[in-house]
Design a protein around this nucleic acid. Structure first.
Length: 152
DNA sequence: GCCAACGTTGGC
DNA sequence: GCCAACGTTGGC
């Protein structure tokens, strides 16, 4: 089993949206960065994903979701009415992928970015680098343990 | 294939 | 709302 971190703007999709319907998978779509897409493609059913709230008042890790469906072509790329539409994508040659995530856990308190930055042992996690824009990233088992421990 | 211009991300 | 960082686009 592998570990990941995925960013989201909570106005769009937050940990509360997962918690509200804990049995209902949410499609993680709209990823339009090649490196992030490649990581999506590496996700397996059962992998755990930190849900990170970005571009909002309380920035940080809000909880955990679980991969319920591995990567498949992101339907929004074919939809001209979607903000994620990509005219370069074709049904027989999709450029972008989505996964389905399902609720796992909501942290009692969000783990703020400030706290994350003060932790030791997270060197190399792209989130730690200033100016980093990667929206889906791998988390090593050790990094996962450190972050999970800091959240409680 | 270089690189300037442009658009987007995301913390502050 | 600002702006630094950085990915993408397009002219050459």
């Amino acid at each position: 089993m592998a570990f990941w971190l995925a960013k989201t703007e909570p106005d769009e999709c937050s940990i509360d949206d997962f918690a509200r319907a804990p049995q209902t998978p949410i499609r993680w779509d709209g990823v339009r960065n090649f490196q992030a897409r490649n990581y999506l493609g590496q996700m397996s059913v059962g992998d755990l994903v930190f849900i990170y709230h970005s571009s909002c008042r309380e920035i940080g890790i809000a909880g955990i979701a679980r991969v319920s469906t591995a990567a498949y072509p992101d339907p929004s790329q074919f939809d001209p009415s979607s903000p994620y539409h990509d005219p370069k994508s074709r049904e027989d040659k999709p450029r972008w992928q989505a996964v389905d995530l399902i609720f796992q856990q909501r942290f009692a308190e969000l783990l703020p970015l400030d706290s994350i930055k003060s932790l030791n042992g997270l060197d190399g996690l792209p989130l730690m680098q200033r100016g980093n824009r990667l929206s889906v990233m791998p988390v090593s088992p050790e990094q996962w343990r450190i972050l999970l421990h800091a959240s409680s």
